[in-house]
Amino acid sequence: MFDCYDLFDEVQLFYVMKWEIRLHGRGGQGVVTASKIIAEAAFAEGYQSQSIPFFGAERRGSPVTAFTRISEHEIRERSQIYHPDYLLILDPLVMRTVDVFQGLKSGGGVVISSPSAIERDVFPNIELTVGLVDGVGVSIRNDLVVAGNPVVNIPAIGAFLRIFPEISIECVEKIVLEKFGNRSVRALYSSYDETEVFRIRGSREKKKEERKKPEKVWIPASKPAKGVAGITGYWRDFRPVIDYGRCTGCLNCWIHCPEGSISRKNGDVEIDYTFCKGCLVCLAVCPRKAISSEREVSA
């Protein structure tokens, strides 16, 4: 008898187009939303698609990952993506704490949102197409700073469309317009235009993966200690700066800082930039407007 499943398998092997995209960023940057927009646009283009968020600790600034799958056929995977065809890196600082290139396929594409060029030794030793854009810059220029956070997901999508021709920018435009309005559409187009696309073969050799085996876990308890969540200072886009001429030492910022990175020293408050994650809560609560913000460019 004619076995349609065998035939289907063969058809899949040879003809099914399928792309897996992994997105890296930090809480508050719209990583999950970007994954959703790409999936929706692909769906509108007639593909099957899937957007999977992976949430860590619900904490502004902590590393976040999301996944998008696009295929011509039903997508059966429910797991995370380990061998992506494309990477979207919404924040270059994430590269310091997360091995973002892990499992990336040779010949794949990478979008990086960064204000400065990325050294060759950052990329792995495989053929890659890179789309580089200063997402934060695009966002600031298009007035897309929400609650102190420049929206970098829309610029990253704009850059992605330059290296992923299966989705048209008009299709994304419709979705972005409906969800976020005109300013976002402008940011989408300016990032599309500004993105620098180039091919590169990186020089970073693959690190041997040592999967850390967790110790015996007896009780869900932890000791509070400085820096147990890592160097949260790497998460910062903006640096809060105290103007001591205006500061009265009221301690309002000290009590509100979610990271405990403001300390009291000889009657003065002081910010520990190793751990200040740049959320700018202190700026918002200072009654004397003694705190201003400066963009971090030390990516």
Partner: peptide
């Protein structure tokens, strides 16, 4: 001090 029942 320790945190009990924390995130895992």
């Amino acid at each position: 001090p320790e945190t009990h029942g924390n995130i895992l």
